[in-house]
Design a protein around this nucleic acid. Structure first.
Lengths: 228, 228
DNA sequence: CACTGAATACTCTGATTCGAGTAATCGAGG
DNA sequence: CCTCGATTACTCGAATCAGAGTATTCAGTG
């Protein structure tokens, strides 16, 4: 997605609004907010105005008129260009069809989790599971309410997608927490022993220099695959 | 996560390395690469050096010595401070225990998908499903190979997590594509008709001004919940 | 009819991020 | 012994982002 002139998804949302009819930036942001898009696309003023300027610079939108009512700040109404329509369709098609590697904070956390003792990690993950369950409950009631009022699947798609992903995360996190707690998760013993030694004042560097000596045969694995 | 002085997850990875032993920045990056962390944490030089500087500025790490071999650029070796260790543990605990709203590009795409005709979207999503299947195959062989060499669960956790999430996404995307194709997904008819009219030269603005007139009773929903 | 809080409509600045670019060293091959 | 590509070790600048801050209008309240 780096090759697009304007890469912020907010720009796509702007194009989507202007594809409907000309608007001024603030109207774009209110429209998006009203339609609940802020739940799937980060909207903030700083980005909005720089994104609009950038879209204009690249010929994807053009200023139509600048009006001023009373002593209010002036409003510039923009309209989409043909190039803008093409970019909108192409970009949207790409977003839907092409998975991109996204780095989540949980992945970062998991990849560095050996930095905390297993008992702590198990507790932290269990807490996360609780919070995920709470989020899921909220989301479910929101979805149920919307359905009750007659909103169709089409407008709930972001919500149901989020539901799917949250629920997959919950299942993973829950069973991981359990596996660490009960020790069924392979590697917990060495992991635990490592923190025991550290607590006793042995440096990580020392342990890694001679894992078998400090941790027994199970530590051998660290020679090839050091922890994070 | 905005309240942390240094918010880039790369900073956490740096702390994690320095928690092991003092290193110079480039060594940190090689270590992380060698351990495969670049798959879960974005590592790039630009960020690395500014993150290191920022960590130093906030007293979480400190420069230990600056050496120079021959005419090579000089290397500054950093070590973690007590405050740094505390920050590392606290931050890691937060990452593991607290879900944060993350905006994925697919969510953005889904929330704006009414901008393309349903037939196109169904095809694009089917393509995505294919690509997800391919990614899953690759990931599965990687995991199988690692297991075969004796790597324990502990060091495969990022991979198995990614597997879970990919597979949940695949299931959702696959069934969404199918639902749109077959019409079992509620709202497809109106959505299709809208693009038919647009193709015939009717503006979106016009349609939205009188949805029932243009789309029949099913268009009524647009009065309350306009599309994206 | 003065006051308050919400909504309108941006502007500005500092911080971050990215990735291309630079420049030296080292080992392998012809 | 000379060169070529890989590795080491960063530097720099342009672009982007975030979000606090500003200034005006308007609707409702006492």
């Amino acid at each position: 997605m780096a090759r697009r002139r304007v890469s912020n998804p907010l720009a796509l949302a702007v194009l989507s609004c202007l594809n409907e009819r000309p608007m001024h930036p603030y109207e774009v942001s209110s429209t998006l907010r009203f339609r609940g898009k802020e739940d799937s696309i980060r909207i903030n003023y700083g980005s909005l105005y720089s994104v609009v300027e950038s879209l204009q610079k690249h010929g994807l939108i053009r200023a139509r008129e600048t009006t001023r009512e009373g002593r209010r700040p002036e409003r510039t109404v923009y309209e989409i260009t043909d190039a803008g329509v093409a970019e909108f369709e192409d970009w949207l098609a790409e977003l839907l069809s092409t998975p991109v590697r996204e780095f989540t904070s949980l992945e970062a956390g998991l990849s560095l989790m050996p930095g905390l003792p297993p008992e702590d990690v198990a507790k932290l993950l269990a807490k996360r599971a609780d919070r995920l369950r709470a989020e899921l409950r909220t989301l479910d009631t929101t979805l149920a309410e919307a359905t009750a009022v007659g909103v169709t699947d089409l407008f709930l798609v972001e919500g149901t997608f989020r539901r799917t992903m949250l629920s997959a995360e919950l299942e993973y996190v829950g069973s991981l927490a359990e596996g660490i707690r009960t020790g069924s998760f392979a590697g917990v013993k060495v992991w635990h022993r490592m923190h025991e030694l550290r607590g006793a004042g042995v440096g990580l560097e020392e342990i890694l220099a001679d894992p078998v000596g400090h941790l027994g045969e199970e530590g051998r694995i660290l020679l090839q695959f050091p922890p994070g």
